[in-house]
């Protein structure tokens, strides 16, 4: 398998994990925490993270 395909597979796996965590963390570990540094912070980091992962996914494109 070529390098760009391997890298893309890893990034897609990262994206899938991030999406699962976006449900699991706020509704599991951080459930009922009435503070900013709980669900709000997790989703904020999730947003930044998925933008970074998608940027990485398209960075190998050779238009």
């Amino acid at each position: 398998m070529s390098d760009y395909r391997r890298r893309a597979n890893r990034t897609l796996a990262g994206l899938a994990i991030a999406i699962v965590m976006a449900y699991a963390l706020p509704y599991g570990l951080l459930r009922d925490q009435p503070v900013w540094a709980a669900a709000f912070l997790v989703w904020l980091l999730f947003g930044v993270g998925v933008i970074a992962l998608i940027a990485r996914l398209v960075s190998d494109w050779q238009p």
Partner: peptide
Amino acid sequence: GVGALGFELVYLAGLGLVAIFGP
């Protein structure tokens, strides 16, 4: 409350589909 933020950011994560289907 804050669930609205998660709801809208999961949509944004769905843009990963554009990276797959767009090309």
